[in-house]
């Protein structure tokens, strides 16, 4: 057989996930222009990466995720590898908790996401203090993480809705 249908499907998912994450990164960067989000834009890419890794783990291999993080760091002027390290933590957490989360209620998934965000916040604080030798701006980071936590259910609902539509149109579970 010349074409492997499953491999093609996975490749399509990987390309789609990469494009989606790239779009999220540039939208986040653009949202910095909105005065209310100055310096604390909600992390859309965190929500998307978490949900994609949970529902389609094969769609988010490590290297494209590393690349997306590096591009974000380029646009934002943060140290190279900083955002990629955050993304890799998300991937690691999802991989670890996936057997439990895949059958869990949306509220449980949300609470696990919030717990993960708290962990990420501690990591952000630590990196900030090591890099700048000063206390991080707590209010800004809290606002950013809080807003991200509030946005997560919307993305979760959108992805579930997309899956239902896909199933209705004859796609696979």
């Amino acid at each position: 057989m010349l074409f492997d249908r499953k491999a093609d499907q996975i490749l399509f998912q990987q390309v789609f996930a990469f494009v989606l994450l790239m779009l999220a990164v540039f939208v986040e960067s653009g949202l910095g222009l909105v005065p209310s989000f100055y310096g604390s834009v909600p992390k859309i890419s965190f929500c998307l990466l978490f949900l994609i890794a949970l529902n389609r783990p094969a769609a988010v291999p490590l290297y494209p995720v590393l690349l997306v993080g590096l591009i974000y760091d380029t646009v934002q002027g943060s140290p190279f590898g900083y955002t990629s390290s955050l993304y890799l933590i998300i991937l690691g957490v999802v991989e670890w908790r996936r057997p439990f989360l895949i059958i869990a209620d949306p509220s449980v998934i949300w609470s696990e996401f919030v717990i993960m965000l708290v962990g990420l916040m501690i990591y952000i604080f630590a990196v900030f203090m090591i890099f700048h030798g000063a206390w991080p701006p707590f209010a800004e980071i809290l606002f950013q993480i809080g807003f991200t936590a509030l946005l997560f259910p919307i993305f979760n609902w959108m992805i579930s809705f997309g899956r239902q539509v896909g199933l209705y149109l004859g796609g696979e579970q």
Partner: peptide, 15 residues
Amino acid sequence: RVIAINADSFAHVVM
């Protein structure tokens, strides 16, 4: 023209 403003509090940099 400003293209991108800092979205994070890690670095206050604009392009």
